[in-house]
Write a protein that binds this DNA or RNA. Structure first.
Lengths: 194, 194, 194, 194
DNA sequence: GATGAATGAGAGTTCATTCAT
DNA sequence: AATGAATGAACTCTCATTCAT
């Protein structure tokens, strides 16, 4: 009957995060997700085109929320430095508090064909864009070097944060991810500043 | 008794790089590698335990050569700054000149189960150790901040470089990767320095 | 209680002819017929027991009308020869003017399990009986050979006409089917006559 | 090891005839054919592209043998009449003595998509061509009407014979098919003659 | 060491049918 | 009567791996 179509859609995505995090994308059978969600196998195909589509939808859903929330948080910051600090804090804190999401984001999502990667790149691009905007802003505010290549800077900034998260996930998470935020910020901010 | 006959072992690894880069790990069939190498399907199993073993062996082979060569290059450097510059230059230049290897390293190798990841982590660790040694050296030489968390610094440094390479691979390589080395070095060195 | 509401029953049969002719029986989903008819999937099962039942009902409906009309047309004929001519003309003209029906009759209806075939044989039998009656009549009127095996003759007559139609359907219908009626009549009438 | 590749290919085709005749094409699972042939499921796919390919290959194999043998038999006939008689006799005798083949040819082969039909049409065309050649020969020999439309005549001749076989198969074969050859010949030859 | 035919477990996906509303 | 979301059985095909030669 589907009172809110969103409801079962979300139930399935939640089941998918759990199952992917537990078993890994390739080892997960569609039947596993269905069982975890408490529905029949065929029901999955009412809401998603196929197995890949589940992964992509999942990432888009996670990423959209991530970027949206981050955007509103940034509104309170007064300059690029604060914004960069907020980005790092938010990134590490959010993933640090959602280990299942982190595992899917850092490991499972990279286990897919390049073709599918395109479906994943799009929502990621908005995060990239956000970082680049902050860097540009810093340059305009006279905080960052004028000769900074914004795109390369963004890659280094994102890559640095991302690697910190990946190492945490792969280590089995024996320490608090968010605790690294000052170290990471210090390392990255200096590269940008005059 | 495998892995002795260096010749055919290498032929198979070369065939694997080509095939993985072209088709991707999961889409590649063992039979494809065999055909590319000009041997029978069964022959692959004389030299490798299974499909995963090919990927791991491949990475170990590539990584060992990478780190060995990098080590000897670093011998000529007089301080940590120069060494870090060399690392970045070498990393970007080497992968920039071997697109097939880069594709396998940046994309295909991340498409595997966590279980396999362990087989891949090991050779990577020696690269991580190398970077950390350079950072420690910098601290001892009074070049880098004493309060620097070496491990976190290494993650940011490696993550930054790695992301630059990944973006290049995913972009379809329309620009010269090594050209980014100064920008990347500038961004990272400042984070470390006093 | 099904099959009463003639209107929606007929709408579904019309939708079925169109869909079967377009997609073929096995490729057609019940949902396709429902969409073509503008009703919900479940509604189909109010009027028909299952997918096979649609096909059988469809054939019975078409065949009954076919034989009924043919019967009344034959009333005007004065002897067996004229009747046979009328049969051939009617058969080729009717199917020639209804390509969708022809496609379903000649191709799709033969794509079904033998079990279902029995449901289809019954309405076909009345057409066979009609042809046999005409042949018997011809024998009684002294027009056809006394030693004629009526049943075999009917098979040859029907098979001949039927094959002409099948070839026309499979050819994509680039010519006028009814134009063949004289040729077919000439070929078949001589086999029967003294 | 496959001493003669033909061997296992033929074993599979034999298994397919049996299984299709017993269960019908659509009800038959590839696994059933494999079991009947005494091989693994996957082995079927070494010799055939897919399930449809089995059916098509089967028909081509049967039809080629049918037409080849018929051709050599016709060599002994002195004129078109004898040849037509031989065709009818051969057609009814051959299928009459191979009920499994007959069932597959008359019923199962017609249960497939039109697309596949094309793979089946080709070998059938050589039989059609053969019949048309005999009719043309009869016209040249002055035996058959000059105004005969060869193509239409062939359809009627083939359709007549074919329907006789189909009725025999569908009836459960309680009588001898070949016994009908004189009747069928008489019916068809008169339609052609002057 | 080398071959490659054979294996067979495994999973994604479809769709006829049901039934609560 | 009508709906259409949900069901879940069914089945084709792939491909890593083996082993007799």
């Amino acid at each position: 009957m589907a009172k809110r179509t969103g409801s079962k859609n979300q139930i399935l995505l939640d089941a998918a995060v759990k199952t992917f995090a537990r078993t890994g994308y390739h080892r997960t059978r569609v039947a596993d997700i269905a069982r975890e969600a408490g529905v029949a196998d065929g029901t999955v195909y009412i809401y998603f085109q196929n197995k890949e589509d589940i992964l992509i939808s999942l990432f888009q859903s996670l990423m959209n929320r991530f970027v949206d929330e981050l955007y509103s948080e940034l509104a309170q910051c007064i300059n690029a430095n604060e914004k960069l600090e907020k980005i790092i804090t938010y990134h590490l804190t959010t993933l640090g508090s959602k280990p299942e999401q982190a595992k899917v984001t850092q490991l499972e999502l990279r286990q897919i064909d390049q073709k599918i990667n395109e479906g994943i790149s799009k929502p990621l691009l908005s995060y990239f864009k956000l970082i680049e905007e902050v860097i540009e802003e810093g340059k305009e505010q006279g905080l960052y070097r004028q000769d900074l290549n914004t795109r390369t800077a963004r890659k280094v900034v994102f890559g640095g944060i991302d690697e910190v998260v990946t190492c945490w996930v792969m280590s089995g998470k024996p320490y608090n991810l968010a605790d690294l935020k000052e170290s990471v910020f210090e390392l990255l901010i200096r590269g940008l500043q005059k």
